[in-house]
Simulated assay, not measured.
Amino acid sequence: METVKQVNENEKEKPSILGMIGSPSAQFVKMRYNPAFAMALTIVTGLFIIGMWLTTFTMDQIYEGLDLSGEELDIAILIGKVTAVITGILSAGLGALFSSVILLLIAKIVRSGVTFKQLFSMNIHLMVISALGLILNTAVGIAIDQSSTIYFTSLAGVLNSDSAVLGSIELFSIWSAVLLGFGLQKTADFSKTASWVVVILTLLFSVGLAFMGTLFTGLTS
């Protein structure tokens, strides 16, 4: 009876964005029975807009290092700011959509009965971690008057390095990946092995992209 009562309560309760920080496991269970995402999408999109808007305050320093005339510099900064805000608007939805499609394909392989809506709800809620990381790191950059694409919470930031590979090893990314592992178990009914394999592959993919970007930059420079 107690188990049935708990399931009925989970079916009624919606997952909480704030709960992703204090009680993520409980939120993942709620997503399984009630995969709501409208409020989370609104909040996370708002956070990404704030984060990308904050990045516009450091654009002057970035573009001033380029060989541009006064008018060209103004146009470049304007385009950069508009692009940043648009990116903030689209990041959450498109990011969660892409991740959900990939995970749904993996779910078919491991024979999980998870639905796209459950995965989308999980990924949208997970993206609050990335949004907070963006806001924190950008705010710190503004506070110390430093424009850098390297997160201060990354290994590159700790070691004061410009390495994109070290920059991909980052606190909020690891936090999000670990939560993904628990989410796949609680929401998507993945086995522990399958869940952590996905987490490891996700982290390796991030490092691999950074390495390929560094390699490509070296070849074109």
Rank of each mutant, 00 (worst) to 15 (best):
S173N: 15
V110A: 08
L184A: 01
G133F: 02
I142W: 00
S168E: 08
K117L: 15
S147E: 11
F152W: 12
V110S: 10
T149H: 15
F116S: 00
T138D: 09
Q146N: 15
Y151W: 13
Q118G: 11
I174W: 02
V101W: 04
M127F: 15
I106P: 11
L179M: 11
N137W: 01
I135S: 02
E170Y: 04
I135L: 03
I150E: 02
A143F: 07
I109H: 12
A131G: 05
L126Q: 09
A156Y: 02
K108P: 06
L134M: 10
S130Y: 12
F182P: 02
I169Q: 10
T153Q: 08
M127T: 12
V114H: 00
S99R: 11
S176R: 14
S99Q: 15
S176E: 13
I142G: 03
D145E: 15
K108I: 14
S112G: 09
S99E: 14
G133S: 01
S154M: 06
L134P: 10
K186G: 08
L180F: 04
V158H: 11
L134K: 01
S176A: 14
S161H: 00
G167A: 01
I124H: 01
T138I: 03
K186D: 14
L103H: 00
V140H: 00
L184N: 02
L105G: 15
R111M: 15
L119A: 00
S161M: 03
